[in-house]
């Protein structure tokens, strides 16, 4: 299991591994927003938390199809499926690797981009905490979507269509926590819901992902 994780991380960091693409996309989305809505500082600071959440979500979505597609194309997935690692473990590791290479850098970059969007000072901590709690759920749900579409050629658009509705609860609670934090309100309730969703998806969704992967390999 550790071997699989280190391999995936190493592959992501080597040339063509796609590490940093999500981060760059996040940057671009956030930079585009002021061009679209205008440079007024008060307007930007009121939408900053939401924009950062949607940017992080889209950046996460962008890198989902890589989770299984490469292993599928070169036959590794067949070989891994017949190896001693259970498929449930395989999909969990894949989700973890995706979070480490995409989710975690996004969390780290968010405060920097938040400065550019005039996020109020009291909003930084809630933003980081909500992203830290929410992005693992995005990775786990995304892994399910990637497992569903692994056999489909050019399934990227379909993957987005399937995954985005599943992201709704995470986005609502995560962005709600970040927004309330920016307004200086209490954030415990949305954070508790967000943590609940993250724990629930981590505990249950790998079984569904493994099931659909098994169907797709057949």
């Amino acid at each position: 299991m550790i071997a699989l994780l280190t391999r995936d991380l190493r592959l992501a960091l080597r040339a063509g591994g796609g590490f940093g693409l999500g981060l760059a996309f996040f940057l671009i989305v956030v930079v585009m927003v002021p061009f679209a809505v205008g440079p007024r500082a008060d307007l930007l600071s009121s939408i900053a938390a939401g924009v950062l959440w949607i940017g992080a979500l889209l950046a996460c979505l962008l890198s989902l199809d890589r989770i299984f597609a490469l292993d599928w194309e070169d036959g590794s997935l067949d070989l891994l499926a017949t190896s001693p690692i259970p498929l449930e473990g395989l999909v969990s590791i894949k989700a973890l690797a995706h979070w480490l290479t995409t989710g975690l850098p996004l969390v780290a970059a968010a405060p920097v981009l938040a400065v550019m969007l005039n996020l109020p000072p009291q909003g930084f901590m809630p933003l980081i905490i909500s992203l830290l709690l929410g992005t693992p759920a995005l990775s786990v749900i995304g892994t399910f979507g990637a497992a569903l579409t692994v056999g489909i050629k050019r399934g990227g658009l379909l993957l987005s269509l399937l995954v985005l509705p599943l992201y709704v609860p995470t986005l609502i609670f995560g962005a709600e926590a970040a927004r309330r934090g920016a307004d200086g309100l209490d954030i415990t309730t949305p954070l508790a819901f967000l943590a609940g969703i993250t724990c629930g998806t981590i505990a249950l969704l790998p079984f569904a992902s493994a099931a659909v992967l098994r169907i797709n390999l057949r």
């Binding site: 040339a15 591994g17 070169d74 590794s76 067949d78 070989l79 017949t82």
Partner: peptide, 17 residues
């Protein structure tokens, strides 16, 4: 049980490793 290894048409080799 646990005694089999499969090798298909594709080798499952990662080009960057």
């Amino acid at each position: 049980e646990g005694g089999l290894v499969y090798a298909g048409h594709a080798d499952g080799i990662k080009p960057t490793l």
